[in-house]
Write a protein that binds this DNA or RNA. Structure first.
Lengths: 233, 233
DNA sequence: CTATAATCAATTGTTGACAATTGACCTATT
DNA sequence: AATAGGTCAATTGTCAACAATTGATTATAG
């Protein structure tokens, strides 16, 4: 009596399946920023009609993973430090709101779920498996936002997460040392569980501001290194 | 040499035009929440094919103005106090970020534009024309967010504004007295113009929190009045 | 040789026909 | 009379053909 929801209407639709398939490839890094997407080619590969692909590409455009130049082309969205900056600043305020609401409204069941998500992150960090860590990290944030019960926030956040994953791969943003990672998340988790809304909001914000700082610092470093060596065109 | 931009590629596309037309009707109040949207009917009225309408409805869905039940129907999104609550809480953090960035980055030209937008609001308030006031109000907020230069934020905010307009009509949220309206906006404008980022962010937040409070208060009042008179089914 | 205009292939935009799904209505059976 | 099941019309989902647009290429005139 668990779930036979995998047949749920939404995911039976071909355009959703096509969008899922293409999204996976973009977020994986299989399709790099700027990569051109040909409707005909995708239609052939996924064995659906061009109209269905078109529908999928429109959805991915609304998710910020694909760009369209009307009458001309579809491309995978660009990746750059500026794009990443936009994502992290947005993420900061969205997760700030999510954490605040979560702290205010968490039920006992919610708290248990959050503790579990945190335990997963700790386990992943101890295992040292980088991909597992990233997954657990995102999942913890997703859990916090999910507890808020704010439908629009949850939806926006999910889109944002996908974009962050995409940018991360291509900007090459490194992960911090595991110790700080764990302690940051523990603090956030504790604030939510203990119902300290103001602190939860602030921690969620700060967590993302810190990422922005690191991002800008690294980009600055690279830039100065580049101007030192390379000659401008 | 001003602009012959009305021919710009994007707006020539039939699906965009269709989306614009339908959006206008939803935001106007011509199409109430829950109103069913028949692809065939819309196609006939707008004199385009069903595929084009489909594309337009998908876009409006991503804007939060339309809901889809797969294989079954399209409807205008529901309106309720809860939906409005979601919109205002989101708006609070988005405009908070927008105001902060605007205060940090505003150029002299930006400041002039913002002053102009504020003057427009004052003029509208003095004229007493309610629709003009609402327009000028939204436009002021749009200007602040626009100055931030944050592409994703600007886009999200624009979508949000449309949803707020739609909910406002059907929830019947009243506008405050003009004096407070003007003074609130003057304070925000001044904070941005003077480069006081922290204050700008706080004012933008507070402005929306206040709306939420009023919203919940009115809804509570109505609810208790209803339970006092009507008998539950 | 350069600049301008015409041509063309590649790609996206739009359409109408056909398929699949749903919910309401009708019928038959207990 | 109530209910289970079948039928059908209405509606959405998918497709493949056709139209429009674009950018590159080629031809042409100066």
């Amino acid at each position: 009596m668990v779930a036979l929801e995998s047949l749920k209407t939404q995911d039976r639709l071909l355009d959703r399946q096509a969008a899922n398939s293409i999204r996976r490839q973009i977020v994986n890094g299989s399709m790099p920023p700027g990569h051109r997407l040909l409707e005909t080619e995708l239609a052939r590969d996924l064995e659906v009609s061009r109209g269905t692909i078109r529908s999928a590409l429109m959805q991915l455009t609304s998710e910020g993973l694909v760009c369209q130049v009307a009458f001309t082309k579809w491309e995978v969205a660009p990746a750059s430090v500026h794009e990443a900056w936009e994502l992290y600043t947005l993420r900061g305020v969205l997760e700030g709101l999510g954490a605040r609401l979560a702290a205010e409204r968490a039920t006992p069941a919610d708290r248990t779920q959050l503790e579990k998500a945190f335990a997963q992150l700790e386990k992943a960090a101890n295992s040292g498996n980088r991909e597992a860590i990233v997954d657990a990290d995102f999942n913890l944030h997703r859990t916090v936002v999910g507890i808020s019960g704010h439908k629009r926030l949850i939806q926006q956040h999910e889109k944002l997460i996908q974009q962050v994953r995409f940018q991360m791969i291509h900007i090459g943003l490194t992960t911090r040392d595991y110790h700080h990672l764990i302690e940051d998340h523990r603090a956030l988790k504790d604030a939510v569980v203990s119902g300290n809304a103001a602190r939860a909001a602030e921690l969620a914000q700060t967590h993302n501001s810190a990422e922005v700082e690191r991002l800008l610092a690294e980009s600055e470093k690279e830039k100065s290194a580049a101007t030192g060596r390379d000659s401008p065109d």
